[in-house]
Amino acid sequence: MIRGVRGATTVKNNTEAEILNAAEELFIKMIEKNEIHPDDVASVFISTTEDLDAGFPAKGMRQIEGWQYVPVMCMREMPVPNSLKMCIRVMLHLNTDKDQTEIHHVYLREANILRPDLEK
């Protein structure tokens, strides 16, 4: 079974260092909370809001030991009026036996407003 694991975070400044650090923090939390091994990951989609263009958040994942060969794609989030700015969103596709209710989605910093219903 392939399950989606969602995550999101925000940054205060559009700098490569801040984007990479925030992305790496998010990936590590998603990995830890869901006990994810890179060999179980089919792919990862990462989107950023249009105000983030100083670096690729996928590089944050590449800095984690063992994650160099996981297929990752970065893309631009839809520019919906009044939506959360300076945001990095992740959709990780995981091969797992876990039920949907056992998946832990991770929302950090200002992104926690995106899915308050998932707070555990």
Rank of each mutant, 00 (worst) to 15 (best):
residue 1 M to I: 03
residue 1 M to Y: 09
residue 1 M to F: 08
residue 2 I to A: 02
residue 2 I to D: 04
residue 2 I to P: 00
residue 3 R to I: 04
residue 3 R to N: 04
residue 4 G to N: 15
residue 4 G to A: 12
residue 5 V to E: 02
residue 5 V to W: 01
residue 6 R to W: 14
residue 6 R to Q: 10
residue 6 R to K: 13
residue 6 R to N: 08
residue 7 G to K: 04
residue 7 G to W: 12
residue 8 A to M: 07
residue 8 A to S: 13
residue 10 T to L: 07
residue 12 K to F: 13
residue 12 K to W: 11
residue 13 N to A: 12
residue 14 N to C: 10
residue 16 E to A: 14
residue 16 E to M: 10
residue 18 E to D: 10
residue 20 L to Q: 02
residue 20 L to R: 05
residue 22 A to R: 10
residue 22 A to N: 09
residue 24 E to S: 09
residue 25 E to T: 15
residue 27 F to V: 05
residue 27 F to A: 11
residue 29 K to S: 13
residue 30 M to Y: 07
residue 33 K to M: 12
residue 33 K to L: 15
residue 33 K to A: 14
residue 34 N to K: 04
residue 36 I to T: 05
residue 36 I to Q: 04
residue 36 I to N: 03
residue 38 P to M: 11
residue 38 P to D: 07
residue 39 D to E: 15
residue 41 V to Y: 03
residue 41 V to M: 01
residue 41 V to G: 02
residue 42 A to R: 08
residue 44 V to H: 00
residue 44 V to C: 08
residue 45 F to H: 09
residue 45 F to C: 03
residue 45 F to W: 14
residue 46 I to A: 01
residue 47 S to R: 07
residue 48 T to W: 00
residue 48 T to A: 03
residue 48 T to E: 10
residue 50 E to I: 08
residue 50 E to N: 12
residue 51 D to T: 05
residue 51 D to Q: 05
residue 53 D to I: 07
residue 54 A to N: 06
residue 55 G to E: 03
residue 55 G to P: 01
residue 56 F to D: 15
residue 58 A to G: 15
residue 58 A to L: 06
residue 58 A to V: 08
residue 59 K to R: 15
residue 59 K to F: 14
residue 60 G to P: 04
residue 60 G to Q: 02
residue 61 M to V: 07
residue 62 R to E: 14
residue 62 R to K: 15
residue 64 I to H: 07
residue 66 G to M: 11
residue 67 W to A: 04
residue 68 Q to W: 05
residue 69 Y to G: 01
residue 69 Y to S: 13
residue 70 V to E: 04
residue 71 P to M: 04
residue 71 P to L: 13
residue 71 P to K: 08
residue 75 M to F: 06
residue 75 M to Q: 09
residue 76 R to S: 06
residue 76 R to W: 06
residue 76 R to L: 13
residue 77 E to A: 10
residue 79 P to T: 11
residue 81 P to Y: 12
residue 83 S to G: 10
residue 84 L to M: 05
residue 85 K to T: 14
residue 85 K to R: 15
residue 85 K to Q: 12
residue 87 C to L: 11
residue 87 C to S: 14
residue 89 R to Y: 06
residue 90 V to E: 00
residue 90 V to H: 02
residue 91 M to Y: 05
residue 92 L to E: 02
residue 92 L to C: 09
residue 95 N to L: 03
residue 95 N to I: 07
residue 96 T to K: 02
residue 98 K to L: 13
residue 99 D to R: 13
residue 100 Q to E: 14
residue 100 Q to N: 14
residue 101 T to C: 05
residue 102 E to Q: 15
residue 103 I to C: 03
residue 103 I to W: 04
residue 105 H to G: 02
residue 107 Y to C: 02
residue 109 R to M: 10
residue 109 R to I: 03
residue 110 E to F: 09
residue 110 E to D: 15
residue 110 E to I: 02
residue 111 A to G: 02
residue 111 A to D: 04
residue 111 A to I: 05
residue 112 N to H: 13
residue 112 N to A: 10
residue 113 I to R: 09
residue 113 I to C: 11
residue 114 L to P: 00
residue 114 L to R: 01
residue 115 R to Y: 12
residue 116 P to W: 10
residue 117 D to I: 01
residue 117 D to H: 07
residue 117 D to M: 03
residue 118 L to P: 00
residue 120 K to S: 07
residue 120 K to Q: 03
residue 120 K to Y: 11
